[in-house]
Design a binder for these strands. Sequence first.
DNA 1: TATGAATGAGTGTTCATTCAT
DNA 2: TATGAATGAACACTCATTCAT
Lengths: 205, 205, 205, 205
Amino acid sequence: MQREIRPLGRPRQDHQDKPTKAVILDVATQLFLDKGYQVVSMDDVAKKCGVTKATVYYYYKTKSDLFTDAMVQMMLRIKKRIFDILSTEKPLKDRLFEFAKAHLQATFDMDINGFMKEAKASLSNEQLQQMKQAEDKMYEVLEQALTASMEKGEIPRGYPKLGAHAFVALLTVGNFKDAEHKPIFLSLDEMTEQIVDFYWNGIGN
Amino acid sequence: MQREIRPLGRPRQDHQDKPTKAVILDVATQLFLDKGYQVVSMDDVAKKCGVTKATVYYYYKTKSDLFTDAMVQMMLRIKKRIFDILSTEKPLKDRLFEFAKAHLQATFDMDINGFMKEAKASLSNEQLQQMKQAEDKMYEVLEQALTASMEKGEIPRGYPKLGAHAFVALLTVGNFKDAEHKPIFLSLDEMTEQIVDFYWNGIGN
Amino acid sequence: MQREIRPLGRPRQDHQDKPTKAVILDVATQLFLDKGYQVVSMDDVAKKCGVTKATVYYYYKTKSDLFTDAMVQMMLRIKKRIFDILSTEKPLKDRLFEFAKAHLQATFDMDINGFMKEAKASLSNEQLQQMKQAEDKMYEVLEQALTASMEKGEIPRGYPKLGAHAFVALLTVGNFKDAEHKPIFLSLDEMTEQIVDFYWNGIGN
Amino acid sequence: MQREIRPLGRPRQDHQDKPTKAVILDVATQLFLDKGYQVVSMDDVAKKCGVTKATVYYYYKTKSDLFTDAMVQMMLRIKKRIFDILSTEKPLKDRLFEFAKAHLQATFDMDINGFMKEAKASLSNEQLQQMKQAEDKMYEVLEQALTASMEKGEIPRGYPKLGAHAFVALLTVGNFKDAEHKPIFLSLDEMTEQIVDFYWNGIGN
DNA sequence: TATGAATGAGTGTTCATTCAT
DNA sequence: TATGAATGAACACTCATTCAT
């Protein structure tokens, strides 16, 4: 976890290392996703990066800045991933299946709402806005894929925005575990299939 | 709870002489739902109750105890409400519609997942277990209604557990607002209708 | 310096002790006068009181609150002292002499200006106002004594406000030490006499 | 100090190509006078100079070095200014008037005492000594003018050192503002005149 | 000459928790 | 039953200083 102990001053340029700022962002993203905004301290981030708190502050002026950047970058990456999966020429249902599977494997809940509520008190309006916009863009990619399929007659006409949100919402079902830690379906494949089937019916097929 | 002599007439906000413990629990529930576990301090709860922190500790040994109790009680109440709505003789779709509408009007996201993640680090296993069980029970009520309807042939046979979770998941879509604070559908009624329709298709009708 | 180590919780009421809040205020006053606002940390105050920082915060919500209270109370005390000295029936010059001597013995520079500049950035407008007002009241006492003496014909008519400030300003001369730590006059008595004589001429006698 | 190519015409705030070290010293002097030692950070100085902190450290080994140099240089300049004003052939009272007016216009309190107290904890003995000596020299100029006037019989014999300090002390009265921001006299000219008159009486005329 | 990256030691402040009364 | 006084551990953030380049 800890890289080596670092001497004062500028470190000799070690060109293999990821730049510190990137390390911090990655570690922060992971920690925030894992535990939420409030629970993660700047010291936690720093320690896991093998640097001091002051170094983190060298790159990010406040904790909320770090959080906002982490979340926005993450949503951009997800948007890209969704886009890549949905851009192929396969039938929509197959693409949705792939997307669902990829998402469910990644384990984490794309529970942006929950995050936002928790962090709300600590974020500036501008920061909230930035995050909201990144979130919107994520959904838009999915929405556009649905719209395209509707136009091609692949699925019945309907509300693509509802469709996009419904799909993501249904995915969260895949992460549910009951008090005995049992998920709804035992295998990931079955889980995915059932969710996509459900969705496929939902949009009117 | 000793109170000083007070002028005649209706006391202003005096929690209607509910026992102190109940006042604390209510206030805490509301605060936790509003702002999340970490953000709410025992002092916040105390102040909003008009008592001192020490009094809160008199009734609840720790913050996580208070939280657990607040959440469990709330889920029990919700379970009861779901049960009441689903127990009538109307067709399932109508009952679902009513449930959805009641839920969406209540505004708050039944985002237990999010809460749990945030509080996880601070809760004992036993407390997590208690909450999980209360959550399970909530879903079970819905599950049973679905099972009953399947048996009556009102809806096609399927996975009632998936059905229950899918329904609640879809409801969260109703709370979405984009960066310009616009929801997916402008009216609550249309929102509800579209979600229930989607769901109704989803379960195979 | 450190009183005893204190156990958690409320201490047994030790009726001989000054109340903690008073101890804190006294210690803080002394430290602030000695070293200035910025240099004194809340921890410094706490340690010198034999309590923890959190205890200091129990009584004073912020450092600037503590500072403001400390300075205002001090100025009130000084005002009272000035008033007592100046209220006797002796000739004005004798009263001024007494005041001067008392003041110079107290060593500290009533250098409110300097303090204010240093603390300015950290104080709220209201706090600055409070301090300014306390300062004004201090000067007023002296001013009134001068006005009274003018009316009695004891000293020539002039500007009592200027007279009040001039006197206090001249007193600061008594605290001067050169690079070899030598004051202007070797004995306190001569210092006082010369300053008062100077002042006495200044106001036109 | 390398600067990029720049459009023709007068550069905006570019410190007129003064050597970097001089820019730093000037900026630091102004900041320290304005806000005091502790409040001003090396970063503040650097930013206001348009260089980085490291550059400031290139020229001044520590913050206290920078402070000491800034203050000493400033006192030398003031000494020179006093000297220039007091060296003319006009009557002493006129020269004092001129000096007073120049000083009061400059607004800033020559409150070296206050500064020293604040910075004391952070300065080495040697640095304190340097500052003290520069201060002494400032007063000496005034002292010598007084001595000369005494020898010429222009003013009664007395204590020139007291006279020098008294004069400077009285000047601080000119900077006083009460809680409503009102000075003792409304016009600068009257202020100056009254102070000089007071002083003139004080030294025995 | 000048800088970017990093640190270590603080600083003000908050908060869950404790305990004598 | 309820509270006032106190604590200890943390937390976000700052700053003087260092050093390889």
